[in-house]
């Protein structure tokens, strides 16, 4: 079929740009039924249109319809890492169009489905769990000093890794495909990345507890002139903030529902404050 194509091919740059941009907008129609199905279809549509350009030919039209239907299946993945899957699926569709006899199209969706779990896991913990925490940890501390550099820095730090992963992810998926993924997983590179991210993320969060919660106690004993907060500060500054945070963590671990925790925070704040225990 390949030699019949009269429609001009996309340049590689345009192809990569489409993987990139259409991965970023994959959530535009996120829905309860099949989540990012239409987003993935939108991502791969240019590839399919290029492979089956002639709708007046009933065979091509049939093939195109099958391909469109195939990519309406359930899909869900972190947008940035999803570019890898999109590139890979596009290269598989191209192989399938060239060699329909020896290629089972079910493998395309099987690969998509098997990639979305691990890529979401890595993608979400990297972008939401690490990049965001560092970027916004820095951003908040600058904004609290009244500097507009805070939000700007937070966005720039969020943008760079997102751009990098999406752009090269799509390119890698398309050019190297499944080979590269096995290499990544087998070499322990993922584990190493997760380890580094875990350490940096947790140290920044620990620093936030000490610098941003700021709960203190007004308790003082007039008879002895003892101010409780001074005692706390001399032993371990910000100890109360740490205790409250760990208390919240214990409640979360006990699966106390979010709604209740929000009520506990607000009502607890009013009551504890009125009793003069904490400020």
């Amino acid at each position: 079929m390949g030699e019949k194509m009269a429609v001009k091919k996309r340049s590689d740059f345009k192809k990569y740009f489409q993987f990139f941009w259409r991965s970023w907008n994959i959530q535009a129609s996120w829905n309860y039924e099949r989540q990012m199905n239409m987003g993935f279809l939108y991502g791969i549509a240019p590839t399919l249109d290029e492979l089956y350009p002639d709708e007046s030919d009933p065979v091509q039209r049939q093939h195109k319809q099958e391909a469109y239907e195939r990519h309406m299946a359930f899909y869900n993945c972190t947008p940035q890492t999803s570019a890898f899957t999109l590139g890979l699926a596009a290269s598989m569709e191209e192989q399938y169009a060239l060699d329909r006899e020896n290629f089972n199209p079910d493998t395309i969706n099987a690969v998509k489905t098997s990639l979305m779990g691990p890529l979401s896991g890595v993608g979400d913990s990297f972008f939401q769990g690490t990049v965001r925490i560092i970027a916004f940890g820095l951003g908040i501390s600058l904004a609290q000093q009244g500097s507009i550099l805070g939000p700007i820095l937070a966005i720039i730090l969020s943008f760079i890794p997102a751009w990098f992963v999406t752009w090269y992810g799509g390119k890698l998926g398309y050019t190297m495909g499944s080979k590269y993924l096995t290499k990544l997983q087998g070499g322990g590179l993922m584990d190493q990345l997760m380890y580094v991210c875990g350490i940096v993320g947790l140290m920044v969060v620990g620093a936030m507890v000490a610098s941003m919660v700021g709960i203190t106690t007004p308790i003082a004993f007039e008879s002895t002139g003892l101010v409780l907060q001074d005692v706390v500060d001399s032993i371990l500054p910000q100890a109360i903030s740490l205790l409250v945070t760990l208390g919240m963590l214990a409640l979360i671990r006990r699966k106390v529902p979010t709604g209740w925790l929000l009520v506990i925070c607000i009502v607890g704040g009013i009551v504890v404050n009125a009793l003069g225990i904490l400020v």
Partner: peptide, 22 residues
């Protein structure tokens, strides 16, 4: 004043929620 303390509790809660996943 109570809401002010409540918002600090919420901050602690927000960080704790983060910790629970990390």
């Amino acid at each position: 004043d109570g809401l002010n303390l409540g918002s600090k509790f919420l901050t602690a809660y927000g960080i704790a929620l983060l910790l629970s996943t990390m």
